[in-house]
């Protein structure tokens, strides 16, 4: 199927309407787009989180495909079990045809409590795709900081006050941690660039072995923005190089999008209430620290992808 809007609009959605996610939820968009890349049978596993809670309020379900949820910390292990059972049944000729396996987890269930489980599944080499819908905090339980929460972001467990300016740490680089597992394919994506993102999911599903995609998903409740900006805001994250789009295929790092003009990270920060204290005059050094961090991470990435900053054409 060619990747164009006309064809995609014909595809039946695997996540049906009527789920209980917020209007303007970036994670739902990220998940619907990912599933547009699926042809044929698929089994989904979810870690505890917004998307699990809002799509499966038993006895209701929004899923038109088989779905499994276990607990918070083990989407990687749960999908490992399902995929192993599938292989065992297939070996004995009890299942014919190909089934794809996709595990979804938020940043809490992936960066934090689910990291061990994910790492184990990647190392063992199960044939599955793990997609982290990263909305940069524990949004399901009421906006607590995670190790994906950006520097200085205010959350209920990293509140900004007169002394402490929100979260005092920078987020960990989960995509690089996954890359260190030397799996056949991994990528970073954003739903605003649907062609790039859906293409990555498609590519990943065609590859044998463990695959991983980290997709930035806005949460207007936690980011303190307006629901209508859910897609614009992740685009700005990419344009500021806070969230670069890249992939690593068999160890080859490749940048998928080079902004024509690298915007200052303040452009992304200033539209989000969780950073509003950063715009105060006295917090300028913190904003600079944030910008320096983005610049450094961007440089490190470009070294890996072999791109040079000269490519930036103003």
């Amino acid at each position: 199927m060619p990747l164009n809007l006309k064809e995609l609009s014909k595809k039946p959605e695997l996540l049906s309407p009527g789920h209980r996610a917020c209007a303007g939820c970036g994670s739902v968009v990220a998940i619907r787009q990912a599933l547009m890349a699926v042809d044929g049978p698929v089994v989904l596993a979810f870690a505890t989180g917004c998307m699990e809670v809002s799509t499966t309020i038993y006895p209701y379900t929004s899923w038109r495909v088989p779905y499994i949820h276990n607990a918070f910390e083990n989407a990687g292990a749960t999908i490992s079990g399902v995929e192993t059972a599938y292989r065992a049944l297939k070996k004995r000729g009890k299942i014919k045809g190909d089934i794809k396996f996709i595990a979804f987890g938020g940043d809490g269930g992936t960066y934090d409590i689910g990291l061990q489980s994910l790492s184990g599944a990647l190392e063992r080499g199960h044939n599955f795709l793990y997609i982290c819908y990263n909305n940069e905090a524990y949004m399901n339980t009421g906006i607590q900081r995670s190790s994906a929460t950006p520097f200085c972001a205010a959350t209920t467990t990293s509140p900004s006050g007169t002394v402490i300016p929100g979260k005092t740490q920078f987020p960990k680089d989960l995509t690089a941690i996954v890359a260190a597992h030397n799996i056949p394919y991994l990528a970073q994506a954003s739903p605003h660039n649907w062609r790039d993102y859906i293409g990555k999911v498609k590519k990943a599903l065609d590859i044998e072995g463990p695959k991983f995609i980290n997709v930035l998903s806005s949460c207007f409740r936690g980011w303190r923005t307006q629901p209508v900006t859910s897609i614009d805001i992740v685009k700005t994250a990419v344009e500021t190089c806070f969230w670069p789009l890249y992939e690593v295929e068999n160890g080859e790092w490749k940048l998928n999008y080079m902004p024509k003009e690298k915007l200052p990270v303040a452009e992304w920060i200033k539209v989000q209430g969780r950073f509003k204290h950063l715009l105060k005059e006295e917090n300028k050094p913190l904003l600079q620290e944030f910008q320096d961090w983005v610049d450094k991470q961007w440089d490190i990435l470009l070294q890996k992808t072999g791109d040079t900053v000269h490519k930036v054409v103003v």
């Binding site: 009421g142 607590q144 990293s158 509140p159 006050g161």
Partner: peptide
């Protein structure tokens, strides 16, 4: 602390 409903107010209170 660590997030889980219905005790999140305690974690948030201690954070502040």
């Amino acid at each position: 602390g660590y997030p889980i409903t219905p005790q999140n107010e305690l974690t948030a209170y201690m954070a502040a």
